[in-house]
Design a protein around this nucleic acid. Sequence first.
DNA 1: TAACACATAAACAGCA
DNA 2: CTGCTGTTTATGTGTT
Length: 683
Amino acid sequence: MFQCVFSSVLQPLSTSCLFKHLFYHSATPASQKQPEPIYSKRTEIQRQTVQAHSVKLFIFSALQVARQLLLQQQQQQQQQQQQVSGLKSPKRNDKQPALQVPVSVAMMTPQVITPQQMQQILQQQVLSPQQLQVLLQQQQALMLQQQQLQEFYKKQQEQLQLQLLQQQHAGKQPKEQQQVATQQLAFQQQLLQMQQLQQQHLLSLQRQGLLTIQPGQPALPLQPLPQGMIPTELQQLWKEVTSAHTAEETTGNNHSSLDLTTTCVSSSAPSKTSLIMNPHASTNGQLSVHTPKRESMSHEEHPHSHPLYGHGVCKWPGCEAVCEDFPSFLKHLNSEHALDDRSTAQCRVQMQVVQQLELQLAKDKERLQAMMTHLHVKSTEPKAAPQPLNLVSSVTLSKSASEASPQSLPHTPTTPTAPLTPVTQGPSVITTTSMHTVGPIRRRYSDKYNVPISSADIAQNQEFYKNAEVRPPFTYASLIRQAILESPEKQLTLNEIYNWFTRMFAYFRRNAATWKNAVRHNLSLHKCFVRVENVKGAVWTVDEVEFQKRRPQKISGNPSLIKNMQSSHAYCTPLNAALQASMAENSIPLYTTASMGNPTLGNLASAIREELNGAMEHTNSNESDSSPGRSPMQAVHPVHVKEEPLDPEEAEGPLSLVTTANHSPDFDHDRDYEDEAVNEDIE
DNA sequence: TAACACATAAACAGCA
DNA sequence: CTGCTGTTTATGTGTT
């Protein structure tokens, strides 16, 4: 369960409802402005962590030259002192007596060799002087790390104190604590990663035989951060620390021998957090070759490669503000996408989208593997580039992989918003939120090769297309038909079709003029769309006969596949079941009849049946020259034939299957339906 | 290369 | 006049 954190709403939400709910907040103005965008802050967090790490190693490298065995005693003394003082900075104890946020001592405990262990090692006399030196050097590095951590944490404590006081005066609402829980998690994760890094070092020492840990000694006291920290303060802390570490960056940036990204991904940390921390890591589970530091530096050196900026347009989800240059984009980013309720919620939505995509990708990969195994096809799935999920994507991959695969990295300068880019719809349709879907670029492919699958694809990726600004790989005609068929009365006004587009596809929430024009154009152009005059206006219906007529060219290849489909004697029910199973398996929350007031699944299933029938019908006609005009809907999906005279030019005799049922005088029902759907969405 | 399907842009008309 | 709706034409791209 989630809770909507918008200022006007505090509403418990399920995961699926959250998407819908948040969408209707998209117009909510930013309630408060803070200077730093979330993504930048995350990047800063990563960068600072790595930088701190690098600096520590650099300092250590400089120091180690002068260190000799004499350091043993000093180090032991140092450790003993720390143990006595509870490993807390004395200054912090002095400064934070009352309001100090509890800090886990264990978290601050370095994974260093205890004096007992050191003594043990020395007593064992099993180490050569060189080994001892190495050990001591490593130990020293850890000590430095630890000191850095302590200082860092102390600084945070101080800042936190200040922020607490400020907040008490400002009287901020407590729900803000939830709004930036993501940042808190990220911060905790970074600290945990630091710990794990130390842990890895310790383990490596163990592997080298340089260190033996006593059985009773907890080797890996990994403990989470206390939950007492207030995220808003952490934001400020990070900012402070960021500025404080800027000097270090200039000195230590050449010594980043340790990459926290590795720790980030290889650790058992939840991938969710990993994604938060490293948006550039491939969601495919592959490691990004870019360290966070390089990433942020690249942003500084090549500002136009900002993942949220491209083609002069802000790429923030749901935003398409035109920014002429990068500074204006930064200004826009800071002003419009500051750390406020909306941005945080959008960020969460994005996280959910990515999570869902990952889940789906994993499952579909598994499925693909099983299919390939079953079909005895050698798996050509490369491990370097994520493959598209569906067959539609696979079809397009051969053509578009070279240009689209870089889209899996947000670094690419090419950016979404195809309609804004007049050149092609090729790589531009992929957004940073849709790294997996490299494929569905050319809608016509899907329409031509996989019409039966496309509807299932719509259903299967419904949530995806609703939230990710990816161009759906379906033609306008298919989408319009889908919209009309999903309506309870199989008829929609133009405006309702518009609403369906925007509701079902995030992609169509921008560049309205373009796609609306295309919708109108398609409605007028294709005979399969029939305009029906009504008392209160005109509605559009689908003439299935005409729609099927334009099908023969669509499924042109792979007759064996179609034959296989035909051979399935009762394909409808299994398909429907498979569809539902697939949805359930992928844990994709779907509209249900109950939640939508709109039997989407049923309509989709019937649409699939229809399209399958249509495909096979035309295959039959191709093969056996059977009558092409007969609509499969007559057998599978009977509809009510309205006798009311239609447009005489469009009506095609008694076979016209225009679904104009229930033309009640009170035609406001359709508008009500829209509103109902919206309400259902919110709930 | 031609035919076709499709997307996109745009002009235009009718109407509220 | 403006905006919406609907029609039509032109153009470019990709596929067969």
